[in-house]
Design a protein around this nucleic acid. Structure first.
Length: 424
RNA sequence: GGAGAGGUGGCCGAGAGGCUGAAGGCGGCGGUUUGCUAAACCGUUAUACGGGCUAACACCUGUAUCGAGGGUUCGAAUCCCUCCCUCUCCGCCA
């Protein structure tokens, strides 16, 4: 969410930012409407407050006269009139503020300088690591997974439907190993505090990180209780300090959490349907950072390096992509995607998405810090990134480390957690 | 799920229609005293949104905020209703 003041002080900047994202006319018109609403809002506030001030002095005078046993009937009558007028004006103000807020809540974040304008085709590869394995003769992970008896998609479909996975035997143990490996890496080596959050969250929490109100169709909801299954641990973890003022000496602060993630994937039917590349439920270890505004650009580099380290330890070749404005997520000002090479699928798979959300989520969630005693609280900057998403990581492992006999070599780093050096 | 008790500033805690943004205490900050520390004493201590003045801050001013939302009233922390949360006991449950 943007500051209301942006509407009157930096409208052109806001419009330009929306254009860079490829926003449609409707969104730009919404901004025009916002300008009017902001003006109306301030006029109404003045009118309301003027009358409230009058009511307050009036009431005080009533109190004084009652004490002095003087008559106050005409003051009580004028107070009643003021009250009616206030109620009427407040009704108008509520309508204006409601519309303004609704408008601000659906406007995406402004992208950072250096983020290319345009859509997906303008994404830029900014870094590469490792040597992608030749695709020749490498079987896709769904075949290997089935052959090894570690991925069972048929039975998952029976239990839940398409887009679900059963991991079994060494596959199940692999998931457990990945949880431990990633969590240990980020907590012990990278200094993140380990968090085990709820995965069922309320409306305010999802609004804080930006999934609501705009993307309600994408999340699973438990309507009887108005709760939602999280699409990513970013949601509960970023909201840890919602409506709080954190200590400045706590910043920068990192949190790492493993959770399952749930996504309806409405609108992506038919995409990535094979294997485990796009499922309704998947596992992920997520990194979240709070930082000062001055430091957040550096913190994004740091966080991205932490995610990359996970891939490097696993020995999976990857590349880092700077996303163009049109491909950058709703809450993000700047995003790097990490794509790992899957020779069996013959594609680069997005295994991590690292974003600097600047003050966009912090304003929605009201997360602030006080730089020094006596200074005004300021909004923190929030960042998040996968470290890493499991299914695609597993796909890459099964394909990258595949041997001609159908077995899969376990990378060194995972062996202590898995207790074996080969999946067979 | 049932019965009860409660939610007040950074924290503890008073207040039970007007003089209460809110006593008192703790903590924090500034100062006096002091060789240093401690103690004592004095002062200060929120946030948001408007308006004025500013290059901007500061400052001045108004309004709001006592879990949330409604209602009663000239006037609500205080009375009424609904909801949320916490605690205790009972039931149920992994």
């Amino acid at each position: 969410m943007h500051d209301m003041r942006a509407l009157r002080e930096q409208v052109d900047l806001l419009r330009d930012a929306m254009r860079r994202r490829g926003a449609d006319d409707a969104l730009l018109q919404l901004i025009d409407r916002g300008e009017d609403l902001d003006r109306d809002r301030r006029t109404l506030i003045q009118a309301v407050e003027e009358r409230k001030a009058a009511r307050n002095t009036n009431s005080q005078e009533v109190a004084r006269r009652k004490k002095a046993k003087e008559p106050a009937d005409e003051l009580i009558a004028s107070g009643r009139e003021l009250g009616e007028e206030i109620a009427r004006l407040e009704g108008e103000l509520d309508a204006v503020e409601g519309e303004l807020r609704a408008m601000l809540l659906v406007l995406p974040n402004v992208t950072a300088p250096g983020v290319p304008a345009g859509g997906e085709e303008c994404n830029r590869v900014v870094r590469e690591w490792g040597t992608p394995r030749d695709a020749a003769g490498v079987r896709p992970h769904w075949e290997v997974g089935a052959a090894l008896g570690i991925i069972d998609l048929e039975r998952a479909a029976k239990i839940s439907g398409s887009g679900f996975v059963v991991y079994r035997a060494l596959g199940a143990r692999l998931v457990r190993a990945l949880i431990n490996f990633f969590i240990e890496l980020h907590s012990r080596e990278h200094g993140y505090e380990e968090i085990w959050p709820p995965i069922l969250v309320n409306r305010a929490t999802l609004t804080g990180t930006g999934q609501l109100p705009k993307f309600e169709d994408d999340v699973y909801s438990v309507t009887v209780d108005d709760l939602f299954l999280i699409p990513t641990a970013e949601v509960p973890v970023t909201n840890l300090y919602r409506d709080e003022i954190v200590d400045a000496d706590m910043l920068p602060k990192g949190f790492v959490a493993y959770t399952p993630c749930f996504r309806r994937e409405a609108g992506s039917a038919g995409k990535d349907t094979r294997g485990v590349l796009r499922t309704h439920e998947f596992d992920k270890v997520e990194l979240v950072r709070y930082s000062t505004p001055e430091d957040s650009a550096n913190q994004l580099e740091l966080l991205t390096r932490h995610a990359e380290t996970a891939l490097e330890r696993l020995g999976i070749p990857y590349r880092r992509k700077l996303l163009a404005a049109g491909d950058t997520g709703f809450s993000s000002a700047m995003t790097y995607d990490l794509e790992a090479w899957a020779p069996g699928v013959g594609a680069w798979l997005e295994v991590s998405s690292c974003s600097n959300c600047t003050d966009f989520q912090a304003r929605r969630a009201n997360i602030r810090f006080r730089a020094a005693k006596g200074e005004k609280p300021r909004l923190v900057h929030t960042l998040n990134g996968s470290g890493l998403a499991f299914p695609r990581t597993i796909a890459c492992l099964l394909e990258h480390y595949q041997c001609s006999d159908g077995t899969v070599v376990v990378p060194e780093a995972l062996r202590p957690y898995l207790g074996t050096d080969r999946l067979s």
